[in-house]
Every structure is written in structure tokens, then in C-alpha cells.
Amino acid sequence: MHITLRKTLLSLALSLALAGCGEQAAPPPASQAEVGVISLQPQAQRITSELPGRTKAWLSAEIRPQVGGILQKRLFTEGSQVKTGDVLYIIEPAPYQAAFDQAKANTAEARATLDAAQLKARRYANLVKIDAVSQQDNEDAQSSLQSAKAAYQAAQAAQESARIDLAHTRLQAPISGRVETSSVTPGALVTASQDAALTTVQQLDPLYIDITQSSAQVLHYKRELAAGRLTASGDNEAQIRLVLEDGSEYAHSGSLQFSGASVSQSTGSVTLRAVIPNPEGLLLPGMYVRAQLDEAVDQQALLVPQRAVTRSASGATSVLLVVDGKVEQRQIEVGRSVENQWWVESGLAAGDQVIIEGGQKVRVGDSVKSVTLQQASSTDQLAANAAQ
């Protein structure tokens, strides 16, 4: 009996020892890596184009003489502001003053002749009724009256023409604005309607911005709008913003006023015209600018953080996704950047779980634990989850 009990205890101890050895040999379950993801959701996003443009004066007037003569005076300071009606130049007026005086005298003489003809015609009209003068004499008197009237009207027209020529010896600003440099000095001989302008007056507040857009881009937007994938951003009063030649953003925004109805045969582009305020005079005509224009709205735009996108040596872009608890890599196409995000053109859909944190710790095919993050505070949330 003692032998049997001893064998039983020995067998039990051996079983316990073998069981203990088996438990130590079993490997622990593998822990899943934790990654931070965002769920893509469509959102309305404005399509903004940055297009080249040139500034153009709101009003511009080239000053040319309408009569010839010696330039007597220049009455403005180059680069100064002038008002409508300000005298800019004076051409020697003496010849034109003499011509006006002569025309005025001729008018007075024609008026005296007319008065005499009227008296004679009236008197003969009464005398012919009592046969005191012949019918022929009366007709001659009436004819002389008509000739005197015509001569008087011609004299008046000549006087007015001489007066206009005399007035044109004082060259006035037709608009208010900034006057440019003068191409002539006092003493120069100028001629009527000459090709070279004496100076130019330009109104610089507001300014026009002539913007060019390729016809291909116009067609693309029209097709997208017709298909319903885009909606119009606004009418012809759409707002624009300017980026200057030095890269700085202009402080004032403008509005689109006109879209060209034809395509330039030389450049293949359409001209858009905008108006922008210029109260400080910072912009000058002819400056090159970049105009940022809101053209349409994509109601189903998908944006993905730039840090979630990787680019291969060949230029292909891709992101890591969590699909059914596993890591998957997917190639995508991105368009323009929106702040710190890429606008996705293809490859992703609404609801996709894009890895934005922890992607460097996992490989394609790994099982992971995903933590949904808010994009604005994704780093803080992931750090809090890791601490727990």
C-alpha cells in the first residue's frame, strides 16, 4: 500500500512539473500597434485660380495740340495731380487772337448788311402793293435779304471757329488724375493733331486689372459646372485678390466686372477685367500681378493632410489606410494644396480611414488598432491615448 501511494504521488508531481513547463513555453499574444486615423468627409471647397494680369489706368488721356504754334508755357509739375479743366500748356495765342478779332469784325459787317437788307426788303414789300415799285425790284430786294442772312450766318460760323482755335491755345486736362512727364519744353514748335503726345493724364484710383485665362481651363470649368460636380462661385462681381511682383499680398480686394466673349488667336486665352481700389497709389499702370480668383465650388471635395501623403522617386503619391483592421497602401492623385492639406482628385472616397499618425511604425498588411482623431488636434489626442 505504501508503494502504491508513493507511485501515485510521484505521478502527480511529474504531471504538475510537465504542466508548469508547458505554460512557460507558450508565447504571449502579440500586441497591435496603435495608429491615428481620420475619416475623410466631403466638404464644400472653393476652386481658386491664380492667373497673370496687368494693371491698367481707370481713365487715360493723351494730351495733343489741336492747333499749331510755338509752345509758350507749361503750367504743371510732372507727376502731380491735376483736375479736370486745369490748363497744362499755353500755345502762343497772338495769331489766333488776331484771327478771332478779324472774324468778329466780319460778323459785325455782315450783321450791318443784313439789317440794311431787311429794311429795304420790308419797304419794297409795302411799295409793291401800291405799285410804287416794280415786282422785279421787290423780288431783287427779297433776294438780297436772303443773301445777307446767309452771309451773316457764315460770318458767325467763322467767328465761332476762330474762337475755338483761340481756346485751343490753352491745353486743358480733360480728366482728373496724375500727369506724366512732358515730352516738350516751352519754345518747341507743335502741330495740330501730331502723333507724339505732349503728356498723359491718368486716373489711378481705382485701377483695371486685365487678367488672362487659358481657354482650356475655361472649357474644363464649364464642363464640370454642366455635369453638376461644381457650382458657380458667383456672378460677374466675384471677388479677386492680388499678389504683387515681390510676392506680397495686396491689402485691398477687387471685383470681377467683365469676362471676354472671344479667345485671342495669338495666345489662346480669354481676357477677364477686374476693378480694384488704389487709395494709396501703390499700384501703377503696367505692373505685373497675380490675381487669385474664386471660380467655382466643389461641394464634394476631399482633403487629406499633407503629412499623410508620401511621394515615391517616380513622383507617385500614396497614403496608408486602415481597411478591416489592417494597413493598406493606396495610390492617389492630388491637385492643389489648401493650407496644409492636399486636394484629392482620385484614389480616395468618403469614409476612408487615412493614417496620419503612427504610419512609420507599421507595414502594409499589419493588423493595427485605429484611433479616430480630429485633424486639428490629432497630435495631442494620439499622445493622450499612448499615455493611457
Results as ranks from 00 to 15, higher is better:
2 H>E: 15
5 L>H: 14
16 L>D: 03
21 C>D: 01
35 V>Y: 05
47 I>E: 11
66 Q>P: 05
73 K>A: 06
82 V>I: 03
99 A>G: 11
117 A>Q: 06
121 A>P: 10
122 R>M: 12
123 R>K: 14
125 A>V: 04
127 L>C: 10
132 A>I: 06
141 A>P: 03
145 L>A: 08
147 S>F: 15
151 A>Y: 04
164 I>Y: 01
165 D>E: 04
173 A>P: 02
178 R>T: 13
180 E>N: 09
187 G>Y: 05
197 A>E: 00
199 T>W: 01
204 L>I: 03
206 P>D: 01
208 Y>L: 09
209 I>T: 01
209 I>V: 10
209 I>D: 01
229 R>F: 13
234 G>L: 06
236 N>M: 11
243 V>S: 10
251 A>H: 11
252 H>W: 10
256 L>N: 02
258 F>G: 01
264 S>T: 06
266 S>R: 14
273 R>H: 12
275 V>I: 15
285 P>H: 07
290 R>H: 13
292 Q>T: 08
292 Q>E: 15
298 D>Q: 09
307 R>I: 05
317 T>I: 00
318 S>G: 07
333 E>R: 13
333 E>I: 10
338 V>R: 00
343 W>Y: 14
350 A>I: 06
355 I>T: 00
361 K>G: 07
362 V>I: 11
363 R>L: 13
365 G>A: 07
376 A>V: 05
379 T>K: 12
386 A>S: 09
